[in-house]
Design a protein around this nucleic acid. Sequence first.
DNA 1: GTAAACCGGCGTCAGGTGGG
DNA 2: CCCACCTGACGCCGGTTTAC
Length: 106
Amino acid sequence: MAVTGDETETGSTGDFTACQMHIPSSNLPYGGAGASAHGSKSSGEDTVKKREYRLMKNREAARQCRRKKKEYVKCLENRVAVLENQNKTLIEELRALKDIYRHKIQ
DNA sequence: GTAAACCGGCGTCAGGTGGG
DNA sequence: CCCACCTGACGCCGGTTTAC
């Protein structure tokens, strides 16, 4: 496992354009800073709670990010399949047209 | 049967980004 | 600024596969 620290939260919006998806946002009980930046009066207990909250939100965010990425990759794989099919069809069509042309000129 | 390699998923951290 | 959010990277873990 990783070690200490503090960071991050959850939500939605993001990139992975072309093949995308979107999920709703969330709410936040602890609006304050990460861990008493300057004038904060948060007690130790409060700080711990804030950290736990952040970790929880980031956990969710990471899960969602992975889900989204998987979806994106699946979408790309789909696209590849479609394009390969299209390519095959076009090659076939070209071959047929060439054939017709060849017969016509002789 | 078992050790090693591989795989997929998870939690956490760090850093970037956009909005208020 | 500050905050919330997103995401890449890292390390860990449990399950599966492979080689012996």
